[in-house]
């Protein structure tokens, strides 16, 4: 290579800044709107910070390590009412059941809606059904679950009393109904990701003599894994945060109450509680009335949800900038 020397270029001239945009020349209505946006934005930040700070201060002062390992106990005095081990386990079980049901169903529904959707009338029906479920208040879902799962032939899911009535309160029942909460979120996220895949990806696969099903299984679904993951995490967040279904379909009991003798199944068929119902019970409104415990549990719950939110952000960022880059050079 020949060495090429460049004579030094002249010093760059000073940069001229454009004048600041001033609102004084705007119409009054625009100015009011503009400042209202500012005020709302700042207000929201203050509220968000207040939630975290308040829960941090109240929660950490009440948080003890033994709360995580002790079961709740009935006591009028806060110092003797135990910890929240059972609700913590309960939260985990309900979320696991809900997601294990919702994730495969949601992905399958999204795949069908995005890739098949025939006949068109059925597809429209499915779409509206999903939208409707997404809009139903969880307390209404809970009451609906109570009607369905107190049918005698579904007694194996919860507990059957000696007179034949079914309690319809168990981890299984709560988890099944909870899956309806997560389902629309998983369908939405997966479908969105599938729609964003360019048509040429499908064409490429069809042109190789692959069926729609093979294309979905081998190309499309692997490509939208980040989308599915963020839908699942959103769904988990929704399940963890729900109280109404827990109170009605899990019983919100003090401790987890197994039913029968079969290991594992006895817990799943039994009633219990989660962090949300624990918080409710220990708040001044609930029968436990141990606000310190409520604060501590609320703090734990908040942290779990914040971590999940961070996870969603990360996953969706991974989708736009990361591994699957369909943009062409």
């Amino acid at each position: 290579m020949a060495t090429v020397e460049l004579a030094p270029s002249p010093a760059p001239p000073a940069i001229v800044q454009p004048p600041r945009d001033r609102t004084s020349s705007w119409p009054l209505l625009d100015r009011i709107g503009y400042w209202a946006c500012w005020a709302t934005g700042i207000g929201l930040c203050v509220i968000a910070a207040a939630i975290v700070l308040f829960m941090l201060v109240e929660g950490i002062s009440a948080l003890r390590l033994n709360l995580f390992v002790e079961s709740p106990a009935a006591s009028l005095h806060q110092s003797q009412s135990g910890g929240f081990l059972d609700p913590l386990i309960g939260t985990f079980i309900v979320t696991a059941i809900g997601i294990l049901i919702a994730a495969p169903l949601g992905v399958a529904l999204a795949a069908w809606l995005s890739e098949y959707a025939r006949p068109a009338g059925l597809a429209r029906g499915v779409e509206s059904a999903i939208e409707m479920i997404a809009g139903v208040p969880s307390i209404v879902l809970a009451i609906f679950g109570l009607i369905v799962f107190s049918q005698g032939f579904l007694g194996f899911l919860s507990q059957r009393a000696s007179d034949g009535t079914v309690t319809a309160q168990s981890f299984l029942v709560a988890g099944i109904v909870m899956s309806l909460l997560a389902l629309p979120l998983i369908v939405g996220a997966t479908r969105e990701a599938l729609t964003q895949l360019p048509g040429r990806v499908r064409e490429a696969s069809f042109a190789l003599g692959k069926t729609r099903a093979t294309t979905l299984r081998c190309v499309l679904l692997p490509a939208v894994r980040p989308g599915i993951a963020s839908g699942v995490v959103l769904g988990i967040g929704r399940i963890i945060g729900d109280t109404a279904i827990i109170v009605i379909l899990l019983g919100a009991t003090l401790k987890n109450e197994p039913v029968g003798n079969v290991p594992l199944l006895k817990t799943l068929r039994g009633s219990g509680s989660t962090l949300t119902s624990y918080i409710y019970n220990n708040s001044p409104a609930g029968e436990g009335n141990a606000p310190q415990k409520a604060y501590a549990a609320a703090f734990v719950l908040l942290m779990v949800v914040l971590v999940l939110n961070a996870l969603v952000t990360r996953l969706s960022r991974g989708r736009s900038a990361g591994a699957v880059d369909w943009t062409m050079k």
Partner: peptide, 25 residues
């Protein structure tokens, strides 16, 4: 038919997999 009459498109459209898996697919 599509395996016997295959097609290459305007935009390169490899699948988001390894080189090997693209051809093996």
């Amino acid at each position: 038919l599509r395996r016997r009459v295959s097609m290459v498109f305007q935009q390169p459209n490899p699948f988001p997999m390894s080189i090997f898996d693209n051809v093996a697919y």
